[in-house]
Design a protein around this nucleic acid. Structure first.
Length: 267
DNA sequence: CTATAAACCTGCTGGC
DNA sequence: TGCCAGCAGGTTTATA
């Protein structure tokens, strides 16, 4: 559920609550959400920054980072004080000096991890380009695409190539670029690659500005929904008319993922 | 390398 | 109305 625009929205809206605070404690109620060991290098340390990288959120401390991944159904919910009990589906609580943030996740797929400064570079290197950064250019997309023989649907979901796209925005970007998801990255012409590059940035920028897409679960600040749900063009629109040509949107399964497209417009 | 499936979890939906 | 198989936006791991 949370892809780049949703994670960005969480970071933006949650930042004022936690920046500059001291993280006193991380209460963990479902240990499997923790990868490796959280240690205590962050304990009673000031939050230096709170940023997004790919679909991860990073709380930066002097000695490293606490990374948070929401996977499918995770949410971070700010509270002024510690709840008296453990609310349903809350598997961790971040206790800051003047704020509490609940990690709630119905499906328990979300993950927390400590990344020391020493490990950060290799962790960062394992992730692909940030699609809204200046380094993400059409030229880069074209040349790196020459090495990708997989179909676009699968390639664009690969976080080691482009970091932050998920099922929703891959379908939306491919529709805007008028490219069929079963095309292979390596087979795209320069013109097509330029279209894809523009489409990815356009879709992600608009979705981020609208606070993301709320399908079933995504909410930020504990209850607010993303506005991009109203702007979706093809995702979960099976049978509805294509916004460009009016023929019905099709659904198929590619790379094991539900895929929505207009077979007339996307070649 | 690429592709596919299964696993991790729970809740919701649709069909019977 | 009630039950149950199937499905869900993510990622990793195993297997072919």
């Amino acid at each position: 559920m949370p892809e780049l625009p949703e994670v960005e929205t969480v970071v933006r809206t949650l930042s004022p609550f936690i920046l500059g605070q001291n993280l006193q404690e991380i209460k963990v109620y479902w240990p499997r959400i923790v990868q490796g060991r959280l240690g205590k290098a962050w304990q009673n340390q000031k939050v230096r920054s709170f940023k997004r990288r790919a679909k991860f959120m990073l709380l930066e401390f002097d000695e490293g980072y606490v990374s948070i991944h929401l996977r499918m159904t995770g949410q971070l919910i700010p509270r002024e004080t510690l709840p008296s009990g453990k609310p349903p589906h809350v598997h961790a609580m971040f206790v800051f000096s003047g704020q509490v943030v609940l990690f709630q996740d119905v499906r328990k797929f979300g993950r927390l991890r400590w990344i020391s400064r020493a490990d950060f570079a290799s962790w960062d290197k394992s992730l692909g380009q940030e699609p809204l950064e200046k380094t993400f250019t059409a030229d880069w997309l074209y040349s790196s695409g020459q090495k990708r023989r997989r179909i676009l649907k699968s390639a664009l979901l690969d976080q080691t190539w482009i970091a932050g796209l998920g099922n929703i925005y891959v379908d939306e970007a491919l529709f805007v670029a008028q490219l069929h998801p079963a095309r292979r990255a390596v087979d795209l012409t320069r013109q097509e690659t330029i279209r894809l590059h523009k489409a990815i940035q356009k879709v992600l920028r608009k979705a981020t500005a609208a606070n993301g897409t709320s399908f079933m679960d995504f909410k930020f600040l504990g209850g607010q929904k993303g506005g991009y749900t109203e702007e979706l063009l093809v995702f979960r629109k099976t049978g509805l008319p294509c916004p460009r040509c009016g023929s019905p949107i099709q659904r198929l399964v590619l790379a094991g993922r539900s895929t929505h497209l207009c077979t007339v417009c996307q070649k």
